[in-house]
């Protein structure tokens, strides 16, 4: 799986409420509508200008706060291809993997990569190729890689249930 896009860079401690405001969590369900409000309270220019495959570079504790999955899906619907951060809040990280959005912890890459850079990520080989250099990361554990490859936890689960690997009754 390869992802190539331009970089949007943000700082430390970006929380779920500025990624997707709580006031929309029970009223907005349409993907296009959700995408239109992504990062609304942090970067009002983001939703209108983000392109498919674009990559977010973040500081420490990206996605801290609420468990709301829209803090991942709104970015995915907006076209974001991956997020690279110094560190992730744990529920945001789980939600990202479970929705097929690669989330990569890489403090050096997060520091070196600049806004507007064009960056490629190769999930199989564990490489981030940026104008400032190539960065390596350990590939995801097989169980997580399978979830990403299948497009998220739900399609992954459907596949395993159909194949009789998981009991549901």
């Amino acid at each position: 799986m390869k992802i190539t896009g331009q970089v949007w860079k943000y700082g430390d401690g970006v929380n779920t409420d500025v990624i997707f405001p709580g006031k929309y969590t029970y009223t907005l369900t349409d993907p296009a509508e959700m995408a239109a409000h992504a990062l609304e309270d942090l970067d009002p220019g983001f939703a209108a200008n983000v392109q498919p495959g674009d990559i977010i570079i973040a500081g420490k504790n990206w996605g801290n706060g609420s468990s709301r999955e829209q803090a991942v899906t709104s970015l995915k619907y907006a076209g974001v291809g991956a997020v690279i951060a110094v560190s992730f809040a744990r529920i945001w990280f789980r939600n990202a993997i479970n929705n097929g959005l690669p989330a990569i912890v890489h403090p050096e890459a997060a520091a070196a990569i600049q806004p507007g850079d064009t960056v490629s990520i190769d999930l199989e080989t564990g490489q981030i190729i940026a104008p400032t250099g190539t960065f390596y990361f350990p590939p995801f554990p097989a169980s997580l890689q399978n979830i990403l490859t299948d497009g998220g936890l739900i399609p992954h689960l459907r596949k395993r249930i159909e194949q009789g690997e998981i009991n549901h009754a």
Partner: peptide
Amino acid sequence: AGIGRSEMAAIWAT
């Protein structure tokens, strides 16, 4: 511990 919505759906099923 807190989890996401997809994960909760998975627990409901399995």
